[in-house]
Design a protein around this nucleic acid. Structure first.
Length: 412
DNA sequence: GTTCCACAGGAATAGACGGGCA
DNA sequence: TGCCCGTCTATTCCTGTGGAAC
């Protein structure tokens, strides 16, 4: 027998569970796509396209829906001789200024051999280059700015929709599609930008469990061989996904992890139990990753909360976490942070989903405050902390402290 | 309706640090 | 090497906020 043996293969096409997989049909977004389609209709009519602003949380099909519709739009527009449609998509992640967006856009229109540098030109020159590229291109041009909330200044969002009205363009008709998962971004736009960019606003709500089931079934059918996936697996993945954030990406990851576990265990069926294992595994990974990105003080704040949790003192408000945190900080020989900064760390921890916060309000008697607790297994987080944090001294001091505290509390 | 509590969290600012560059 | 710049952490000061108490 050889050293390598082929796995019992449950997958037909594992890639179908990946985020970037494009199914032939987009399920679960019927209403949204219908409205989106209506908003794009002017393109086919040969009119000036609407500017569209699209918002919704991560993993609710904004980008996938846009790709899907625009692909069809390009295909259908080709049937009309008087329409010359160009679509350019730009992901603004990692780009912070209008200047950077403008240079990237110019390069999108130019050949690889003719790219411009992303620094060095006066802003007005870059804009002029952009206008001439757009005019050379002519016809209808749709520019999709994904994650548009990463841009910190309005300039390009103001200039682009008005380029034609301002006489910078004579040939091209421009339509902007802005995609954002930050709801407050829209409100923070200056009124003049808001009115032009947000002519059509589309909101993509989170997926509910039924929609997730549809999506997962569709993908699973392609991804797995027949009769490999037990009844209930899909439903369970969807239920977890709907409970957490209504995020399709997350549910798909869970399903894929479950399949991977089944493959690793050499079983030929994907079962409910594996879903639970996979979820724990993903959770562990997420927590480890979150913890590794924290500063020393973040770790100390987390330790403080964890030890309080172990003693049954949670949920606990930040001012009651502080003494514990302060003594931990002293134990490891660092100055404790001011309360304001400590709250930042607590906020960061709850953003990462490692701890949870509930806002409480006792009015004139007690004002508003937040109560923190961990909604996960403390042992698991502690283990992740020990694995991730190499800082000498912390664990020893903390476990010493915990021992003291627990012995103390045993006597009281 | 007004007041007021105690915190939430935004804004301005400073210092440390690291990478790119002449 | 020193300089510049952007990023990250932390501090200080501040305004905002929801609902119980008045």
């Amino acid at each position: 027998m050889g050293m390598f043996e082929r796995d019992t293969e449950i997958y037909r096409n594992r890639d179908a569970l990946r985020e970037d997989y494009q199914p032939d049909e987009l399920v679960g977004r019927d209403e949204e796509l219908e409205r989106y389609k209506t908003a794009l209709q002017p393109v086919i009519n040969g009119e000036q396209p609407n500017n569209i602003f699209l918002y919704g949380k991560t993993g609710v099909g904004k980008t996938a829906g846009t790709r899907f519709l625009l692909d069809h739009l390009i295909e259908d527009a080709a049937q009309y001789e008087d329409i010359d449609l160009t679509v350019k998509m730009l992901n603004c992640d990692g780009l912070s200024s209008s200047y950077q967006i403008a240079t990237r856009l110019v390069n999108k229109f130019r050949a690889d051999s003719n790219q411009i540098s992303t620094t060095g030109y006066p802003r007005a020159t870059v804009y002029d280059m952009l206008w001439s590229e757009l005019d050379d291109c002519g016809g209808t041009v749709i520019i999709v700015l994904d994650e548009v909330d990463h841009i910190e200044d309005d300039s390009i969002l103001y200039q682009l929709p008005r380029a034609r009205a301002n006489g910078n363009l004579s040939e091209a008709k421009i339509g902007i599609i802005g995609i954002s998962n930050d709801f407050s971004f829209r409100d923070n736009l200056s009124p003049k930008v808001k009115s032009s960019l947000c002519e059509e606003e589309l909101q993509f709500p989170a997926y509910d469990a039924n929609e997730l089931i549809k999506i997962l079934s569709q993908r699973a059918q392609v991804a797995f061989h027949e009769d490999v996936v037990d009844d209930g697996v899909i439903e369970l993945c969807a239920a977890y996904g709907a409970k957490d954030a209504g995020d399709a990406r997350q549910s798909l990851d869970l399903l894929m992890k479950t399949g991977d576990l089944a493959r690793d265990y050499d079983t030929d069926t994907v079962t409910d139990d594996l879903v639970r294992d996979a979820r724990e595994e993903l959770e562990r990974g997420r927590i480890r990753e979150g913890i590794s990105g924290l500063t020393q003080h973040g770790h100390l704040v987390l330790y403080a909360l964890l030890t309080l949790e172990q003693q049954g003192e949670t949920p606990v408000r930040s001012r009651d976490i502080r003494p514990r945190y302060t003594s931990f900080a002293e134990q490891v020989g660092v100055d404790p942070l001011v309360p304001r900064r400590m709250r930042d760390h607590l906020g960061e921890l709850s953003m990462l989903g490692i701890i949870s916060a509930v806002e409480r309000n006792e009015g004139r008697r007690g004002g508003t405050y937040r109560e923190y607790s961990t909604d996960m297994d403390v042992g698991m987080i502690l283990k992740a902390l020990e694995e991730t944090v190499e800082q000498v001294g912390i664990h020893e001091s903390v476990s010493e402290m915990v021992d003291q505290e627990t012995t103390l509390s045993e006597y009281t």
